[in-house]
């Protein structure tokens, strides 16, 4: 009698556990597949040139060494390239954050003639492939004399349609009363954007920071075009490509892997620093909902 009543309630629970285990397994498989190239890259950076070219490939370096890293420093000016990348990614990201907040605030909270049409045009630019704007943008930058400089790399990307779109969506959710209260308190509009609105959309800002930083850390085509061979200003991603061709491309794999390992570190650090904001926002929205 007792067993009869307990077993039907137990069975679905077992099924749920099986489903959860299956899901977990799937997640693990996806994670392994996704992490494989990254792991391969890091492992290869510790190999000797011969090991890195061996067929069939060897998994682990017999004697892990840091030689590849010091050799990278000999071939390219790694420090300088890192600095250039950092300047490009940081300044561009900061610019995007500021312009997206301000424009997003205006689109979300101001009523002005042509607002919706202007926003539609802005959204439309998001669908233009970057390659289409490459040449016109290059000619523009050249015309104002910014070519072959870091400034030329940075300035055209200080504002970004996606960032404005993202901030508008989130700022629209900030209560009008909050903004009005700040006005009564005597806050200027700039002050409202940065002291009242920005703290209310921190998760969105964190997401935008990560997105913009990674994108502009990795950007390749645009700096290559604008810098016109001014290798002093090359970001690390372009300098890495020179490792490929160095020594006529013979047995450079370990070098490229070492360089690439270094190059992924900053975006990785960025992610680790910012991820608590995503987790926070998921947790808090879960509690509220």
């Amino acid at each position: 009698m007792n067993q009869r009543t307990t077993s039907p309630t137990r069975r679905p629970r077992v099924r749920i556990d099986a489903a959860a285990a299956g899901l977990r397994l799937a997640i693990v498989i996806v994670a392994v597949v996704a992490a494989f190239p990254l792991v391969w890259m890091v492992l290869s950076s510790f190999k000797t040139p011969a090991e890195s070219m061996q067929v069939p490939p060897v998994w682990l370096p017999a004697t892990p060494s840091l030689d590849a890293y010091s050799e990278v420093a000999d071939v390219i000016n790694a420090g300088r390239s890192f600095w250039n990348s950092a300047v490009i990614a940081t300044v561009t990201t900061a610019g995007i954050l500021i312009t997206s907040l301000m424009a997003g605030y205006a689109f979300a909270k101001y009523r002005f003639r042509g607002r919706d049409a202007l926003f539609a045009v802005l959204i439309a630019t998001m669908f233009l492939p970057p390659i289409v704007t490459l040449i016109p943008l290059y000619r523009l930058v050249t015309a104002i004399g910014l070519n072959a400089s870091l400034l030329g790399v940075i300035v055209p990307h200080l504002a970004n349609a996606f960032g404005i779109f993202l901030m508008r969506q989130f700022i629209a959710g900030v209560p009008d009363d909050l903004i009005d209260a700040a006005r009564v308190d005597g806050a200027s509009e700039l002050r409202i954007v940065f002291s009242v609105v920005a703290p209310s959309v921190v998760p969105a800002l964190a997401a935008l920071t990560l997105f913009a930083f990674v994108y502009h850390w990795n950007t390749y085509l645009w700096p290559l075009t604008v810098l016109q061979g001014n290798s002093d200003d090359y970001p690390i991603v372009i300098s890495l490509s020179r490792l490929l061709s160095y020594n006529r491309g013979a047995m450079n794999t370990h070098l490229v892997m070492a360089g690439a390992t270094l190059a992924v570190l900053p975006p990785l650090v960025m992610f680790v620093l910012l991820q608590r904001f995503f987790v926070d926002s998921i947790v808090s929205s879960g509690v509220k909902g």
Binding site: P175, D177, L178, D180, A181, A182, V184, V196, P199, S200
Partner: peptide
């Protein structure tokens, strides 16, 4: 001004 929604800075 005191607002219906309180409008405190969160």
């Amino acid at each position: 001004m005191v607002f219906q929604s309180y409008a405190l800075y969160p």
